[in-house]
Design a protein around this nucleic acid. Structure first.
Length: 455
RNA sequence: GUGGAUGUAGCUCAGUUGGUUAGAGCACCGGAUUGUGGUUCCGGGGGUCGAGGGUUCGAGUCCCUUCUUCCACCCCA
């Protein structure tokens, strides 16, 4: 019985047209990464679960795709495990591998494992799919591509600057208007410290991250429900209402942190200030704004955090990242700081589609097609084809001796600009009848002339 | 994980208060036209009406379950 073909929820097939467009995105990103001296690496689709779990917070663990052990995957379990109903424990017994959730954690693992084979500071880029067991919706897929750039083994803020330049370059080249938001985890820590709830930093950041979405009142309500005192929330208000230019904000924050003697907060502000100082000397097309409500959920960020939003399209962030001081520590390599960002290729695709901003790039497909008239003609055409291909021109011969109409139709649908007809007459005279599919004109020329014409 | 909408031909969709053999456009295949495509005309193939169960003389249509896709929340690229 024929079954209806389908693919898993949240995954997609890509047609040739879509692949052309996707490659346009990947190629521009890749080119810019290389321009800044980053080198490519790849890591496997699956990692040991021990590498992945606990790195993305509770929510992240839930979204990990786990792979069932091969063979009799139940052999390590017993009746008690099932009766107990502890699915976390059960999972560890039947699954030891999972699909990667992002490219940053596998990269940290990679750095530790290959520390003797790479040169520090190590600048790498990586363009590969990642998987999340999320519920799919607009701009959210279960399999999607991330394009990561990270510099690891250096605390220099020049890296942060470079990443901003890369973001600006990429979106300028792709012609997407964006706002680059920047913040610093140390500032957020400083604030949590000042208001007396340093342990609640995660709850606080998640709440204020929602400010532009749910409004000030709801944020305050959420903070209260997370056990933050009213007095502390009161203290937080000037921060939430912080406005003005980037330098205004920096000045106000500086004052606040020195008044309250918060070393961490001050350090964060200084970092931000340095980055903005760097930016003064170069041209950046995108808006770069200091946004204190930018929190980002990932637990491992310790310094700068970035997020990019498209101004003219309604979709989540299309790029994000930050600095992590101790990601390699979990794998046994201490004191290696890194910073990186990740471009969401699939969302960028959606934005470009919404904006109708894909260029009319030349699809690199067949330029010349030979019509197939019969056995004798086939044999005559084969060396001609070889010659054309040798000259670097994409060419093909219709593989069957089908009706003219069918062959012409094929060429037409594939947008082949030139069709070559070689029958008895042409063979006798040693010429080709070449039809221009745009205007329908046809002329008799030699192979050499054809090559010159198409080249 | 929570809530809402959705599903009819390969695609986009009609289908009356439940009533004969479920339709259209596009796409596909063939012919008009055996060495000339994109236009036109004529013809043709294609459906477990998402799946399973129920109500009914009778279900694409009503009810239940389940799955898919989309949207919102959570979270995120």
């Amino acid at each position: 019985m024929a079954q209806k073909p389908s693919i898993p929820k949240g995954t997609r097939d890509f047609l040739p047209l879509e692949m052309g467009r996707r490659n346009y995105i990947f190629n521009t990103i890749k080119k810019i990464f290389q321009l800044y001296g980053y080198l490519p690496i790849e890591t496997p689709a699956m990692e040991n679960l021990s590498t992945l779990t606990g790195k993305y917070g509770e929510e992240g663990d839930r979204l990990l795709f786990k792979i069932l052990n091969s063979g009799d995957y139940l052999k390590k379990t017993n009746d008690f495990d099932f009766k107990e109903g502890n699915s976390n424990k059960l999972t560890s017994l039947i699954s030891e591998k999972g699909l990667r959730y992002d490219l940053t954690v596998p990269f940290a693992r990679f750095v530790v494992q290959h520390r003797n084979d790479i040169v520090f500071p190590f600048k790498r880029y990586q363009i590969q799919p990642v998987w999340r067991a999320d519920k799919p919706q607009k701009g959210r897929y279960r399999e999607f591509f991330q394009c990561d750039v990270d510099a690891i083994g250096t605390t220099s803020l020049l890296n942060e600057l470079e990443l901003i330049q890369i973001m600006d370059d990429v979106f300028d080249t792709l012609k997407i208007n964006v706002e680059i938001k920047i913040n610093n985890r140390k500032i957020l820590s400083g604030i949590a410290e000042i208001i007396g709830f340093p342990d609640k930093i995660i709850d606080i950041t998640i709440a204020i991250d929602k400010l532009d979405k749910i409004g000030l009142e709801n944020v305050n309500a959420e903070l209260l429900s997370k056990g933050i005192s009213e007095k502390a929330i009161e203290q937080l208000q000037p921060v939430l209402n912080l406005s003005g230019t980037n330098s205004d904000k920096i000045l106000k924050l500086k004052k606040m942190f020195s008044d309250f003697n918060s070393e961490t907060g001050l350090k964060g502000v200084n970092e931000i200030e340095t980055i903005f100082e760097y930016l003064e000397n170069i041209k950046i097309k995108s808006d770069v704004t200091l946004d204190l409500t930018l929190a980002r959920g990932l637990d491992y960020y310790t310094g700068a955090i970035f997020e990019v939003k498209a101004k003219d399209a309604k979709i989540g962030s299309i790029c994000g990242g930050g600095r992590y001081d101790n990601l390699t520590g979990i794998f046994g390599l201490k004191d290696v700081s890194g910073v990186g960002i990740s471009f969401g290729a699939d969302r960028i695709y959606d934005v470009l589609e919404q904006l109708n901003a894909f260029p009319d790039y030349a699809v690199s497909s067949t330029k010349i097609m030979f019509v197939n008239f019969g056995d004798k003609e086939e044999k005559y055409c084969i060396p001609l084809l070889a010659k054309i291909r040798k000259a670097g021109i994409n060419a093909e011969i219709y593989p069957e001796q089908a009706k003219m109409k069918k062959q012409m139709n094929y060429a037409n649908k594939k947008n082949v600009p030139y069709v070559v007809l070689v029958g008895e007459n042409e063979m006798k005279q040693n010429i080709l009848s070449v039809k221009n599919m745009d205007n329908g004109e046809q002329k008799s020329i030699s192979v050499e002339e054809l090559i010159d014409m198409v080249k």
